[in-house]
Design a protein around this nucleic acid. Structure first.
Length: 603
RNA sequence: GCCACCGUAGCUCAAUGGCAGAGCAUCCGCCUUGUAAGCGGACGGUUAAGGGUUCGAGUCCCUUCGGUGGCUCCA
């Protein structure tokens, strides 16, 4: 889905949409008995779904691609005509999916609550090219000569299963993906970008840098952090923990399970039932691996009588939560079954709400800016008005959304409102980050919640002695530390800022006799808190450099006779810049400055 | 969960249904090195697990486990 509305109706959009039709024609020539479903343009290409008599082979795909090119070269025109519903049904008498689409269009679509979401259509349109006619609203190119036959590909990606209308209870179809561009160069750029993304894959880089591993014996979706990965996330956590304490947060610690009744009260249990591990029976009680930290934090709030003078109360915890994701949804660190949330819950008075919300947003901006994550947009997620999966009354929801929007406006944040993107207990503000490859990731989130305080009957004593209900703000800048680390690995391609790099410097003695000096330098650097290794192996210097480069160690410090004599280190950066021999004091000063300032540069 | 594909040494990958191999890593030697991998040797395998077909299975079939891509961006 492109957020760019200029895409729809553009020449590229028409090219891709038309290529999808040509692909359907080719597939029908190859498998005359195939049932065709839908074939829209998508970001970077198009797809078409088919019900095929057998699984596709690479040869089938190659045949389809070649046939598409041949059809395009015939310079076939695309003709549109209006048809009546009866005519359309007669034409597609053997195509069950098309008939269903036609029926829906004629009767209008309704959702599961019986509300109409599309008006009935009296007239439909057909697009025809060459021997193929499809039910389609267009638009298309006028003639296939507008499509560059050398700038399309369907063999670039494997076909995949896709449920008819995304519904797992309905037939599973074969989805063939295609990509199409205006020029061969644009196609090549796209394929290069895919290749780059593949090389940066955090599962590949994570293996190379010894950051984490998985074990089938431990369980799928349960990452194991190796020392290098653990120090990386620990560095992020320590920094955020300190930053939060400076900003008035109080650390709390809560257990990994909780009584099922806790989650019945919060509403998590019914809401997240399908994505939770089954309850654990202990004596006469049932316990749940916690899917969220908020109920535990709420019980800490509730453990004391609160005065308005105590508020805002800000409880922070790196809390590990467990969710039962469908096995096919699991991927590396970005989708796991156990992960740690940099969670905090703020309990505030109505008067404090907007200011506290703004302070949270500023904290999140500070966190992202520090890491060099500067390209992000904000999304205000509100309820889907057609859904009933939310808790609480309309008034609370409207107040909460109004507070978020007021805060965004006064911060001058560039945001847009998206329906159906709220949490079940309240609307939220999400930060959506674009990485160096222009891929979007949803990161930090802030939620305003009037409902859990109500469900748990939270109170504070106001100035006038009356009992009042606080409002909660839920927030997590990183969201899941696992997922965030995965995104960081791909964004930086493993070349992390020095302050978070698992190994910040490697000492490379040229010959055995330099090992003592190397150890001495390493000790000095560890003394200022640096993470340093000494490569005392018997490989040559060149080989040690090659290994350190591979591991993306920011500083390679080569020490030989000249350095030992002069008290210098010969500094090579992971960018291959050679800084030559620096007096040790000078290097220490430089490294200290880079690390303490959390600089994104190496010097 | 479902569909398709995949699973050979720690990693990357070879092996027509016919003796399971290489490079890297690890370990042991030799070399004592100045900016992208010096030389030699050793170790390493129930070919993911289990079953079947076959004179013979890494290879073919079935089951299980694990991984990868995908599962509305609604004509």
């Amino acid at each position: 889905m492109s957020s760019d509305n200029r895409y729809v109706g553009s020449q590229l959009y028409k090219i891709r949409h038309s290529a999808a039709h040509i692909m359907a024609q080719a597939v029908l020539e190859h498998f005359p008995e195939a049932q065709i479903a839908i074939g829209p343009p998508i970001e970077d290409g198009f797809y078409y779904d088919f019900d095929l008599p057998r699984a596709l082979t690479d040869e089938d795909l190659a045949w389809i691609e070649n046939r598409m090119k041949a059809i395009i070269r015939k310079e076939v025109s695309f003709a549109v005509r209006e048809v009546s519903p009866d005519e359309a049904l007669a034409f597609f008498k053997d195509q069950v999916f098309k008939r269903e689409l036609i029926e829906d269009l004629v009767h209008g679509r309704t959702d599961e609550n019986g509300e109409q979401i599309a008006a009935p259509a009296a007239k439909l349109t057909f697009y025809t090219q060459d021997t193929f006619t499809d039910l389609c609203r267009g638009p298309h190119v006028a003639n296939s000569r507008e499509i560059n036959p050398d700038a399309i590909s369907v063999t670039f990606k494997k076909p995949a299963g896709a449920y008819w209308r995304g519904d797992e209870k309905r037939p599973q179809l074969t989805r063939i993906y295609g990509t199409a561009w205006e020029t061969v160069e644009a196609l090549q750029d796209y394929l290069t970008r895919l290749e780059e993304a593949r090389k940066r894959d955090h599962r590949v880089v994570g293996e190379r840098l010894d950051l984490f591993t998985f074990s089938p014996l431990v369980g799928k979706g349960l990452p194991l952090w190796k020392p290098k990965g653990a120090i990386l996330r620990d560095t992020l956590e320590r920094w955020l923990r300190e930053t939060q304490i400076e900003n008035g947060y109080d650390p709390v610690v809560t257990p990994h399970i909780g009584n099922l009744n806790l989650y019945r009260t919060s509403g998590h249990y019914p809401y997240y039932k399908d994505s939770q591990y089954a309850p654990i029976q202990v004596d006469d009680d049932e316990f749940l691996l916690k899917p969220m930290n908020c109920p535990h934090h709420i019980m800490i709030y509730k453990s004391e009588m609160r005065s308005y003078r105590d508020l805002p109360v800000r409880y922070a915890e790196f809390g590990t939560v467990y969710r039962y994701e469908q096995s096919g949804e699991l991927t590396g660190l970005t989708r796991v079954r156990g992960f740690t949330v940099d969670d905090a819950h703020l309990f505030v008075t109505p008067e404090q709400l907007v200011d506290e919300f703004k302070a949270v947003v500023r904290l999140i901006q500070y966190v992202f800016n520090t890491l060099g994550f500067s390209d992000f947009r904000a999304r205000v997620g509100v309820r889907d008005p057609k859904s009933d999966k939310y808790v609480g009354g309309d008034e609370n929801w409207e107040k909460a959304a109004a507070a978020i929007i007021e805060a965004c406006d006064s911060l001058g944040l560039n945001y847009h409102v998206a329906e159906g993107e709220a949490a079940f207990y309240g609307p939220k503000l999400d930060f959506i980050f674009r990485d160096v490859l222009k891929r979007e990731w949803q990161l930090g989130t802030v939620q305003v919640d009037y409902n859990l305080p109500e469900r748990f009957e939270l109170e504070y004593v106001a100035e006038d002695g009356t009992r009042q209900r606080p409002i909660m703000i839920h927030r997590a800048p990183f969201g899941s530390i696992e997922r965030f680390t995965g995104i960081m690995i791909e964004h930086f391609n493993g070349a992390f800022p020095v302050w978070v790099s698992p190994v910040q410097a490697v000492l490379i003695p040229i010959a055995d006799r330099h090992s003592a000096y190397a150890a001495e330098v390493a000790k000095r650097l560890r003394g200022i808190g640096m993470r340093v290794e000494v490569d005392a192996g018997k490989a040559r210097m060149g080989a040690k450099i090659a290994v350190a480069r591979e591991k993306l160690v920011p500083y390679m410090l080569i020490v030989g006779d000249k350095d030992a004599a002069a008290g210098t280190v010969s500094v090579r950066l992971r960018t291959d810049e050679d800084l030559g021999a620096l007096p040790l004091d000078e290097f220490v000063e430089m490294a200290r400055r880079v690390i303490e300032s959390k600089s994104l540069e190496l010097r």
